[in-house]
Each structure stands twice: as C-alpha cells, then as structure tokens.
Design a protein around this nucleic acid. Structure first.
Lengths: 268, 268
DNA sequence: GGACGTGTTCCGCTAGCCGGACCATTTCGT
DNA sequence: ACGAAATGGTCCGGCTAGCGGAACACGTCC
C-alpha cells in the first residue's frame, strides 16, 4: 500500500507535484513524451523527442503515431507538437471548469473596479497553479504569469492564502522543504513565513510586496467550498507604485462573499 | 501505407473528428477511459467506467490507478473524474495558446464596442471547435456555447467562414456528408450552402440568422496566418433583436486586419 | 438471510510491446 | 563534390508487461 515512489533523490526540481517519473509501462512512456514539451517548446522532432525522453527511437515513433491518430499530438512538416484534443479534454476537467465559470464574472468586476490584474489559483503539490487570469487595461509589459503557470506557494499572495487557510498537512510539507528565494524580498525563513500566515488568519487576507516579482505586489483571499474547506484563492496584482491595498481588500472581500455563496451550491 | 482505419461502419456519430476508436493497445484503452467523460459527467465510478468503455474491470482499475498517479485522473471518495494536470497540459498546446493570446485583447475590444459576445474558433473534423469566448455585459441566459465546445461547420457563422475561405478538401467533405438541421432555419441544402459561401467570398464576411440558435445571429470573418491560409475564424454573436450587422462587419474587419498582422509574425 | 452492488487482489497465459539492427534520405562540414 | 552524420521510418524475434476471468472483502438493499 506504499504508493508515492521511493526515489526522493532528485536534483532538477525540489519535489515535483507528481512523483514517479520512471516506469517502463506504456503509460509511463506516454507520460514522458507528453511532458517533455515545455511551456515554450513549440515543436520537437522525433529524434529530439527520443533524446529527451530517453526512450528508444522506435518506441517513440510507434507511440507518437498512435498519439497523433488520437489527436493528443499533431504533426507539422515532420515535427511533433501538442495537439488540439489535449486542449479540448483539458477544458472538461470539472474542478477547473466550475471554479473558472463561477469566478470569471466576478474577476471581471474586480478588474473593472481596479484596472489591475486578477488571478484565480489552486494549490497543486508545493506550488500554486493559475486557473485563470483577467488583465486590466493598463498595458502590462512582459508579465510572465500565465494561465496554467506555476509558482511556489510560499512567495505568492494566492499561495500564502492557500497555506494560511488550507490544510495543516500542506503547510507542514512546505515548511519541511527549503523555501526557494524568487526575489530578494521573498520570505525564506520558516519562522517569518509562519508569522505572516498567522497575521493572514487574523486579518482574513494576505498581502505580498515584491516577493514574486520586483515592482509588483498582490493581495489575496481564500475561497471556501461547500464543505467549508479552502478550494482556491483569488488575488489582485498591481505595480507597487499604484498599490491601494485597502481598496483591494474591500473589493476582494465583497467578491469573496459572493463567491462563497456560489460555491456552497456546487460540489467541488 | 494505408493508415486511417478500415472500419467505416459506424452508427453513433456520422464521421467523428478522430477515427479508430477500437484498438486493444494500451493507448486505445486509455483513450476510451478519458473520452467517456462527457462534457458534464463530473464523476464516474469504477464500475460505470468499465461499463462505458467495455473494458474489463480489472484493466480499468489498473490503468485508472496509473492515470491518477500521473494526475490525468483524480479520485474523490471512490469516484473518478478528469484531473487538473490534463487542464495544465492542455493549456500548453501551441496552436490554441498562440491564437488565444493574440486574439484575446482584440476580442475584448470587440466586446466593449458591441456589448455582445465574441467567439474564436478553428475547424476540427467537420465541426468548429471554440478556442475562446468573451461575453458582453448584457446578461445572457443559458447560452450553451462554451470554450472547447463543438458545433457543425455548416450552421455557424465561424464554420461557414472557415468553409468559404478554407481548403477545398474540407468543403468537399462537408458537402458529401448529410447536413444536419440544428434549427428550422439551418441551411441543409448543399446548393444553398454553396451559394452562401460564394456570397461570403465576395463580401469577405459571413452572416447567419438563427441557424444555430433561435433568437440569435452571428457575423464572422476568417483569420489568415503567415502562409496566407485560413487558420481560424472570429465572430460576434447577438440577439436578433439587437443585430447591427454593418457595425459588426466594420469592427470585425478592423480587428481582422490587426490580427492578420500579428499572425503573419507567428508560426502557426 | 441471500442477492445484489461495489472496489480490490491474485495469477497463469499470451499477445502486444520492445528495441537493436537496418534502410532511405537529407543535411551538413571542409 | 563527397563522405559523415544527422534525420525519419521499418522490420522482426524475444520476452515481458499487460491481460482479464475468477475470487475476494466489503457495504446495501429488499
């Protein structure tokens, strides 16, 4: 009954969200193939695919053919890339779709009231996973936050909200792992983080200044589901020069109450 | 060299976008498992999964376990549902991401100018696949169009645009298959459809009235990529009572020109 | 009580997967 | 120009991973 693979010796990424990368099952190979496509690796050749996955060229060829037939992979003059059907199926995942559909109108309200950017995120592993993002009209240059992007839990406002109001177990996991420094102002001392979270629990919200990206700050609140457990977090991000924390907190609380009502009717 | 499976005898759906459903390979089984989750089937039990896929219970059990470990499936008190990682990988598919990222700001402009709903779609099989949707503030009740949803090519404005300006091969395929009637006003006569498409080619846009949904009309234009080929379509949908076709056409053409410039710099 | 339904485990058989070796092209490199 | 070294693609015997019927342990409903 001991799942969660025993291979904890891993350099590249300190504790990834889903363990067990090596497995010579067919599914293991398929997994490797689909996951070597990075966020910006548009296309990969067959040889490149074989090299990165560590699989035999013949195996990659056979499996890729089948994946193309399914639509999970596409072929563009000899190169492979992720296929449209992957997007299609991905849009069906209920946890994401329900949260998104409920939150979207409220996020638009938030953005219209603040002219800044709103984020919706859930915890996945030791990171936040952004489910949606609505940008304000203020032209934002090269903001790297993107939908389905990830960031550490301990440096983002949404992450801290999920930690402060989420399960004890998750917090313990974060505390035992080393806290990576994302910017010079990122909280990397466990004690300090604990203080921040305690303050958050008292205030009901989290504010973070330049801990994720220099020049920007965020305010976040937790969103609770029908059972009362925290299921997601909602945030407003703004340049520090324009930061109006009190206003963001007021608006977020307003939106949060509406969201709680909507979520209590749903099964998440 | 004869790919594309020889099993053309299929009742359930007249020509589905991706052929070859039966295959006793591991990937074939996984495909069945992931695709029996309908648009609204939140969760399925193991037995239900085995029943719908036609696979042995033990096989479903084993594969599902591996899928849960990967994150493509999630388990909620005994029931299975599509997992978050599916959403995450799906957001990476380049064709969708590039089109969406480029079109999103322009779609927001469109919506702010019209207060109606904008759609971005591509052709997939004999259907349009909606990549994105931006709704106007006018409260729209129970509009079933959703992101990653599908509709026949021949009844929607976006679909007709993709047919009129797309590849000859695609048009032939649509013409040979029977044209399903979605509403009483749907064009089901091939000759009439051909006329509509010819008119569209002359005018540079497509308008459709209540052919997809009673009470609503749409105007669409094609979007051309770097090579000059049509890669997607953009539309405005409004209740027939508020329809201002000329205005929508003007705005769409404006946006279309900007989009063409953006797309010509990208590789789609 | 038994007759369902569920999820889970076991285990021997076999077919589906494996991957080294090989081939046909194209693209270098000097 | 000419190999050298890439590339994508195919073949096929060996073997192992996957298969699925059967049996299991629950819970639930007449």
């Amino acid at each position: 009954m001991e799942a969660t693979a025993p291979n904890c010796l891993f350099q590249p990424d300190p504790r990834e969200p889903h363990p067990a990368p090596d497995s010579n099952s067919v599914l293991g190979k398929v997994r490797r193939i689909l996951e070597v496509f990075g966020l910006d690796d548009e296309t990969l050749s067959l040889s490149e695919l074989a090299r990165r996955t560590g699989l035999a060229k013949a195996s990659v060829h056979r499996l890729s053919q089948e994946l193309v037939q399914w639509g999970l992979l596409e072929r563009r003059n000899g190169e492979y890339r992720l296929g449209m059907r992957l997007f299609e199926i991905g849009q069906r995942v209920p946890r994401q779709r329900i949260l998104r559909d409920l939150a979207r109108p409220l996020m638009i309200d938030l953005v219209q009231a603040t002219h800044e950017t709103a984020h919706l995120a859930v915890a996945d592993g030791l990171e936040v996973l952004y489910l949606d993002k609505v940008s304000g009209e203020h032209a934002q240059i090269s903001r790297p936050s993107r939908v389905a992007g990830r960031m550490p839990l301990h440096c983002t406002a949404t992450g801290k909200a999920l930690l402060a109001f989420g399960s004890r177990h998750l917090l313990d996991e974060v505390m035992t792992a080393p806290l990576t420094r994302v910017t010079p102002r990122t909280t990397v001392a466990p004690g300090l983080l604990a203080q921040e979270l305690q303050k958050a629990r008292e205030q009901g919200f989290v504010a973070e200044f330049e801990q994720t990206r220099i020049g920007y700050m965020s305010v976040a609140i937790p969103l609770t589901g029908a059972t009362g457990a925290v299921v997601a977090a909602l945030s407003v991000t703004a340049p520090t020069t324009r930061a109006k924390v009190d206003r963001y907190v007021g608006l977020l609380n307003l939106v949060g109450r509406r969201m709680t009502k909507l979520l209590s009717a749903q099964e998440i």
